[in-house]
Amino acid sequence: MAERAGPALVDVPPHECPGTGSEQAGKATACQGCPNQGLCASARTAGPDPAIEEIKEKMKTVKHKILVLSGKGGVGKSTFSAHLAHGLAEDETKQVAVLDVDICGPSIPKIMGLEGEQVHQSGSGWSPVYVEENLGVMSVGFLLGSPDDAVIWRGPKKNGMIKQFLRDVDWGEVDYLIVDTPPGTSDEHLSLVQYLSATCIDGAVIVTTPQEVALQDVRKEINFCHKVKLPVIGVVENMSGFVCPKCKKESQIFPPTSGGAEAMCHALNVPLLGKVPLDPQIGKSCDMGHSFFSKIPNSPATLSYRDIIQRIQDYCRHNHPQEDRNP
């Protein structure tokens, strides 16, 4: 069955934009002259997608849902998603899952050591591919014939794939679902928020690097979260300085010319979860599909990761304590 394409915004909306969820979408004064006016109006007349209720039912077995976002590519978002999952899964009493919705650049299979694996279908839906008994993964990378195959899809087909992942994957009982997203604030992000709108998302972790060229796009991502009412758990500054293992001198590979993530978080009133120093062993572990935590447990980067993961867990427990109660 062909997927019905949702409207996609084609330009930056005005500051007073009521949003596609509003009854005033396409009708408000701010909509006059906006290139998205027709699209927003048609979104209201089309009615809610029935998949939203189906996904709500499917997600009843998932306690906490965390989106990993960044407006900028190349900041280590997938690396952070993988290590967040590895860190949470170290508690064998917790069931953790990673959903990779970076349709055109799925890196999670490689980072998690699952390259070449395939998805299997059962009577209850698609079965995730497991790294450990308590750590499952789903990615479009498992559906490709080769890791070098290009996914050349338009927005509607990508959105349909995201819908299918959320509706048809049989996660079972899951404590944490980590959703790794592509860069930007476009179709995939709007689809995720729309389809998960009724499922109580815990929030978004936003990843950046210290330099202003990354922070510019990350500010847009934070504004996107505010616009679609997605809570911001906090910001992680990745590749935050490099300490030479021989001379112990610290160098700023990506100089924070405007104050880095810390200054940005202060200005935008969002939490800074922590800073992860640049460590070549992280990239090596990802290329080999290993957990960096198990290889170098006492490195500054590992300690920083663990502190950030603890803050995320504390946030989830504080904001959705009912999800952690035993039946």
Rank of each mutant, 00 (worst) to 15 (best):
G6R: 07
P7S: 12
H15S: 15
H15Q: 15
E16T: 13
C17V: 13
T20W: 12
E23N: 11
A25R: 00
P35M: 15
Q37H: 13
C40Q: 14
C40G: 07
A41S: 08
S42P: 14
A43G: 08
P48S: 14
P50W: 04
I52R: 02
I52A: 04
E53K: 06
I55G: 00
K58H: 11
K63I: 07
H64A: 07
I66A: 00
L67S: 08
V68T: 05
L69R: 02
G74M: 12
G74W: 10
V75T: 06
F80L: 10
S81Y: 01
L88H: 00
A89P: 04
E92A: 14
T93D: 13
T93E: 12
T93F: 14
A97I: 07
D102K: 00
D102M: 06
L114C: 04
L114Q: 00
E115R: 00
G116T: 07
H120C: 07
S122M: 12
G123P: 07
W126A: 02
V129L: 10
V129G: 02
Y130M: 09
V131G: 02
E133T: 11
L135I: 06
M138N: 05
V140W: 01
F142M: 03
F142V: 06
L143W: 10
S146V: 13
D148L: 12
W153S: 08
R154D: 12
R154Y: 09
G155N: 05
K158M: 11
M161P: 13
M161C: 11
R167H: 03
D168C: 01
W171A: 00
V174N: 03
D175T: 10
G184K: 05
T185I: 11
E188S: 05
V193F: 00
L196V: 01
S197V: 05
I206N: 01
Q211H: 10
V213T: 06
Q216G: 14
K220S: 09
E221A: 12
N223Q: 15
L230F: 04
V232K: 03
V232L: 11
V232P: 10
M239L: 08
M239I: 07
S240T: 03
F242V: 09
K246G: 14
K246N: 12
S251V: 12
I253T: 05
F254C: 04
P255D: 10
G259H: 05
A261W: 04
A261F: 00
E262M: 05
C265I: 01
H266Q: 13
L268D: 07
N269S: 14
N269Q: 15
N269V: 10
V270H: 01
K275S: 03
V276P: 05
V276H: 00
D279H: 00
K284P: 10
S285D: 09
S285G: 05
M288T: 12
G289V: 07
G289P: 03
S291D: 03
K295F: 14
K295A: 14
P297L: 07
N298M: 15
N298Q: 15
P300M: 02
L303I: 13
I308P: 00
Q310C: 08
R311A: 03
I312V: 08
Y315L: 09
Y315R: 03
C316Y: 11
C316Q: 03
N319L: 11
P321Q: 13
P321R: 04
